[in-house]
Simulated assay, not measured.
Amino acid sequence: MLKLKNLTFVLWGTLLFLGGCTKEEQAVAPTIANESLTTVILKATNTADAADTTSCRYKFTFDSQGNVTSSDSTPLNLKANATYAVAVQLYDELQSPVFDVSAEIKERQNYHLFFFQPTPISPANLVTGLTSPYIPGTATSATGPYLNLSVARTDHDTNNPAYELGLADKFTTGEASSGNLEVVLRHQPNAKNGTYAPGSTDLDVSYKVIIK
Rank of each mutant, 00 (worst) to 15 (best):
N148V: 07
K208H: 11
T138W: 03
F171T: 04
C21G: 15
S64I: 02
G174N: 03
A152G: 03
T138G: 00
P161Y: 07
L42N: 03
F60R: 15
A51S: 13
T195V: 03
L130A: 09
I210P: 09
P118V: 01
H112S: 13
A124P: 13
S102R: 08
D202P: 13
G174V: 03
S177W: 01
V101Y: 08
T154V: 04
N193G: 03
R108L: 15
G199D: 04
L16C: 14
P145S: 00
R186D: 05
A197M: 11
D202L: 10
F171W: 02
N110V: 06
G20K: 10
G13F: 12
T53G: 11
G129Y: 00
I211S: 00
S206W: 11
S141C: 01
L149T: 07
D100R: 03
W12S: 14
V205W: 08
L4S: 13
S36Y: 14
N193L: 01
F99V: 13
D72T: 13
G194I: 00
V40A: 13
T172R: 05
E182L: 08
L126A: 05
L203V: 06
L42F: 01
G144C: 00
G179F: 02
R153Q: 03
D100N: 12
T140C: 04
K23M: 15
V68S: 06
A51M: 12
K106N: 14
S102W: 08
A50F: 12
G194W: 01
Y91V: 10
V101K: 07
G174A: 01
E25C: 10
N81I: 03
T195I: 02
T74W: 11
L15M: 13
V10E: 11
V40F: 12
G19Y: 04
K23I: 15
A80Y: 00
L130V: 10
A80H: 03
N110Q: 10
A103F: 12
V127N: 00
G166L: 03
V98E: 06
Y207Q: 07
D92A: 09
S200V: 11
D204Y: 14
P161R: 07
G194V: 04
L165N: 06
T53H: 06
L42T: 05
T47M: 13
K23A: 15
V151Y: 07
G137R: 01
S132K: 03
P118F: 04
E24W: 13
D169V: 12
T45F: 13
T83I: 12
A191Y: 14
